[in-house]
Nucleic acid binder design. Structure first.
Lengths: 237, 237
DNA sequence: TGACATAAGTAGCAATCAGCTACTTATTCG
DNA sequence: CGAATAAGTAGCTGATTGCTACTTATGTCA
């Protein structure tokens, strides 16, 4: 076994290093998700894009930093956000922080972007610094991990919505197609929505009933809806 | 909507702040988990305990810091480790870092501790600084989230083990009792273990067959064992 | 007006899976 | 030998999932 006690970390003041908070802010864009990127000043040179980031003001929690960045770049309509890990040295970071703490957030599609920022569809991103590219991937994984429990989809929709709209929102967030009948059955079982008396006709086809988000306290020990287990649809185009 | 573009974070060099890496290192202790804590120099005053922590050396990734701390305090037998989030200001930290990046790790029970460090059973910890107490809780949650996918339990056991030993290990890591028949059925379905020809007699009772870890590539799209869904046992004392 | 296209919503089967009870088997102890 | 103990198994019940195929309600276009 190695020598161990000579440098027991907490006996002396530990080394310390510098970090920033980086943000992967997502929004629906048609049928896909898009990410908010910052354009760096391009003096005739090729454009470069970065994730929004900043460090804490004095006494600010990392959550507060993330929230502040989100407000400053996209207004205050954050449907959900969460920490998605810290990304260390080894891959170069945009502003040479030793470590970046990554947050994922989701905002409704109508949300605009501050000047200097633009939405990019996730399947077609410009090249990012290596560490930030990792962060985007990890942020998506975090989002999809939480879909079963966090009511993100409902906050991206108006108060009343059709089940098809809800399903499409889930499909976009999860990144997979879902099977119509199973999706509806799972929602019913979890008592997540309640029907209203209204129906909406969307052009051709049968009108859809409107629902609202109404998470009733579950009877017994009903478990969360496991959307990740719901099968893909092969019947929908 | 708020004023937004005047302080777009990435246009100027962002603020930066200081962090450390803190470690929640777990080990089996009888039927419970224990955490490794560092004793601070107590000059006659009351003893205080802290999580092991340190900052990065130049160019070191956060994972490397975590690994280095683990080696220095408990040798090199780490069964599994993973990042468990960054914890910000607002609650005081041991060494006044702005942020602590938390790692969870698990080591086998035989692992000793470096001088100045001691194992404490998780249900009976001494008081820790508020932020570190949060970290312990969060670290446990991270561990239990990953149990379905990471083969932690197998690395805490010798190469050959009985299914009862395996079940006890899972119960300790998950923090819940499991039902014997369901546990075995789930393992079989997932092809995680294979039987050997050996049996071991453990005193009274029928001898147990020995198994080894042998995760065969799954046929079709078999999903991970969802240990979190397996029921509690009421028949075992 | 009526046939067709389109989309919403439903019924229900077959397969799988979890929770549980109750068993059989193999060993030690007295 | 019988009681105690622990390993391992059988199999029922009810819930959940994946899926196909339906019914219902509307718009469109001849």
């Amino acid at each position: 076994m190695r020598e161990r006690s000579s440098s027991a970390p907490t006996r002396t003041l530990p080394r310390r290093a510098i970090f920033t908070v980086d943000l992967v802010l997502l929004a629906p864009r048609g049928k896909h998700l898009s990410v908010l990127l910052a354009r760096t000043a391009s003096n005739g040179a090729k454009e470069r894009w970065l994730l929004p980031c900043d460090g804490p003001k004095k006494g600010e929690t990392v959550e507060a930093v993330a929230r502040r960045i989100m407000r400053s770049v996209a207004g205050s309509d954050v449907a959900w956000f969460e920490q998605a890990g810290a990304f260390g040295v080894g891959k170069r970071h945009a502003v040479n922080a030793d470590v970046s703490i990554c947050f994922v957030g989701v905002v409704p599609s109508r949300t605009g972007a501050a000047t200097g920022f633009e939405w990019h569809v996730i399947s077609d991103l410009p090249q990012l610094p290596a560490r930030q590219a990792d962060m985007v991937e990890s942020a998506l994984a975090s989002l999809r991990d939480r879909m079963d429990y966090a009511p993100v989809a409902f906050r991206l929709l108006p108060a009343e919505f059709t089940l098809s709209e809800l399903q499409q929102t889930y499909e976009m967030l999860i990144g997979r197609r879902l099977h119509k009948a199973s999706f509806r059955r799972a929602l019913q079982a979890a008592w997540l929505v309640e029907p209203t008396d209204e129906w909406r006709s969307e052009g051709r086809g049968r009108p859809a009933q409107l629902f609202r988000y109404a998470p009733r306290r579950r009877r017994g020990n009903r478990r969360a809806v496991r959307f990740d287990l719901l099968g893909e649809s092969r019947t929908r185009a």
